[in-house]
Every structure is written in structure tokens, then in C-alpha cells.
């Protein structure tokens, strides 16, 4: 990767639909060069693809909640299985094992506060769960923020 590659990524990071001809003009190189560089980065696996950034709030998601769970150490798998099999209508749960103060982290996205609350109750009432701490994600707009921060990763 050289500076030209990084400049191309910078532009696509802000708007992945930018035509190669526009990128070429901005960077002062022929459009074919941009095309070649892009294809090369895709082939090498540096660029995995391009995607839309959606705003979950506009699709009715009202709550994004992280739930830190302390479970009895030998029963982590069982608790995780229990969480992923909870009946859900308006919510989605992701679960990861982790270390530190908690040993399970869950991310709950919900269109229904009542259901989000019920999930928390159900987790708390599980016999192997000793602690469940909830934090509400108040920046559902993080997505834009993150794309911005990504620039820093590329350095230079």
C-alpha cells in the first residue's frame, strides 16, 4: 500500500459510490489507474467490499443496549445458550464470551422497550447469573462517527 492507495481508500470511506473518474480527478491521476489500484486492493484482500451505512433508528430500532453479565465461570456456555434461545419478537441479541469484570457481553437491539426489559429480567433470573449490568447506547448515530474515525487507522 502506498499513499495513492490510502488516498483512494480515504475517499471511498466517506462515499463508496464515488465514481473512479471523480477520484482520479481529485487525485490528479488517470481513471484507469484508480480502477487498477482498487481491483488490486480487492484481490489482495485489503478491501473486503463496500456497503451502505444505515440508520437503525429510521427502521424503528429504539434501543441499543449492552448487557454485561457475570456468570459462574463453569456455566458460561450454558448461560450463553440460554440467552440466544430466548423467544424474541422485536429484538435481536448478539452474545460474546469475554474476560474482565463480566464474562459474557450481549448487545440487544430492540424496537420495543418492554421486550428489552423482559430480556434483562430473564437473564438476571437465571440461576448461574450473579450480575447483569445494563448500559444504553445513546449514540445510535455512531455509524457516521466510526467511518470518520476509520481514517486514523490508515495513518500517514
Amino acid at each position: 500500500m502506498d499513499l495513492l492507495d490510502i488516498d483512494i481508500i480515504r475517499i471511498l470511506n466517506k462515499n463508496a459510490r464515488t465514481p473512479f473518474s471523480d477520484i482520479a480527478k481529485t487525485l490528479g491521476v488517470p481513471a484507469s489507474v484508480v480502477q487498477v489500484r482498487y481491483n488490486k486492493m480487492r484481490k489482495k484482500g485489503i478491501i473486503l467490499g463496500t456497503s451502505l451505512i444505515l440508520d437503525p433508528e429510521k427502521f424503528g430500532v429504539k434501543y441499543a443496549v449492552t448487557l454485561g453479565i457475570k456468570s459462574l465461570e463453569p456455566n458460561i456456555q450454558e448461560v450463553m445458550k440460554y440467552i440466544t434461545s430466548l423467544p424474541l419478537k422485536d429484538s435481536r441479541i448478539s452474545v460474546w464470551p469475554t474476560f474482565g469484570r463480566f464474562n459474557i457481553i450481549t448487545l440487544i437491539m430492540s424496537k420495543n422497550l418492554l421486550e428489552a426489559h423482559k430480556i434483562k429480567q430473564a437473564v438476571k433470573e437465571h440461576p448461574y447469573v450473579t450480575e447483569a449490568s445494563i448500559s444504553i447506547d445513546i449514540s445510535l448515530y455512531k455509524h457516521k462517527f466510526e467511518a470518520l474515525l476509520l481514517e486514523k487507522e490508515l495513518g500517514c
Binding site: N13, I47, L48, K58, T98
Partner: peptide, 23 residues
């Protein structure tokens, strides 16, 4: 309507030289 707030390029962490991450 704000449903689509943009588009972005998806990069491989290893591809851009990262070795790991912490949360």
C-alpha cells in the same frame, strides 16, 4: 428519509496492518 446515511469501504484489519483489538 435518513434510512441510508451513506456508504463506506470495508477494510480487512490484517490487510491494513492491525494485529488485534481490544474493547
Amino acid at each position: 428519509e435518513g434510512k441510508i446515511s451513506g456508504s463506506t469501504v470495508i477494510l480487512s484489519s490484517i490487510g491494513i496492518g492491525l494485529k488485534g483489538w481490544y474493547a
